[in-house]
Write a protein that binds this DNA or RNA. Sequence first.
DNA 1: TATTGTTATACTCTATAACTATA
DNA 2: TATAGTTATAGAGTATAACAATA
Lengths: 153, 153
Amino acid sequence: MATRKPAPDTAVEQVDTSYLEGLVGYNARRATLVIVDAFLRNMAVYGLKPVEFSVLSLIAHNPGITSRQLCSTLNIQPPNLVGMINQLQRRELITRRPHPHDGRAMGLHLTPAGRKLVKQAELTASELEDAATARLSPAERKTLMQLLRKIYI
Amino acid sequence: MATRKPAPDTAVEQVDTSYLEGLVGYNARRATLVIVDAFLRNMAVYGLKPVEFSVLSLIAHNPGITSRQLCSTLNIQPPNLVGMINQLQRRELITRRPHPHDGRAMGLHLTPAGRKLVKQAELTASELEDAATARLSPAERKTLMQLLRKIYI
DNA sequence: TATTGTTATACTCTATAACTATA
DNA sequence: TATAGTTATAGAGTATAACAATA
């Protein structure tokens, strides 16, 4: 049997991503990266990254919340929260007060400056959310969040 | 005017996450983390992490694709792809061949072993996608992907 | 004995600057 | 002059082990 001469390579003109686009994980990851990127750009004026914003917002809506509760709510490891809490305290955005009935824990609270910053940051977050989801109708945006929650809850 | 005695702190029983749950970014991030986690667990048998899987799958569906094309398709920086490509080549899953009409570039191709691995890995990816989206109907899953694409395209 | 918060530390991921060879 | 691929390197993000104080 004769040896077949190999066909010459051809260049890829247009990358075919149809397989990956059929995966929810791929689409969720790509969409998340876009929103996180917009978040980083718009929240830089407040000196807040996504997790720091989430932490401040959770303290705002749950005054007295503990580090442990923040960790389990946001799925972050306790050692990785320590530096962030210290930094937010140095920036005088939060205070630590003794927990009412657990001597090991500290309740976290916003300072007046923290409350002011969260208020502004939440407003900016809403605006950038609207921009990121500009191609979705309000109903679609609601549907999207409901479907995403069905995955992670 | 008399000084008001501060109210004693009360503990947070149930963390209120309703504000964050109203943000698409928060929900997308949480859902992505859940799927990526499942991916890492299920793909460990193949020694593939999400980006490595995406790279191999793109090479499978686009034989001759270049590193540069992979980078712009997957939004990764060229220096971060170099080590991955070298590793996949050492594992004898891919080969580099001269690009047909660009002497600077190399076309990437799967080896027979690479093709076999991608085939199995894509099957496993479909299974874990089904598990992650078990609470979604097929129509909802399709809707979810369409809505996510409207954000990142 | 278990849990909260903490320190130290390591590993991964991602980003930038600068180089070479080709276009 | 611009681009593909590469090297070196730095920063950010995330993970585990181990400890003191308290439950």
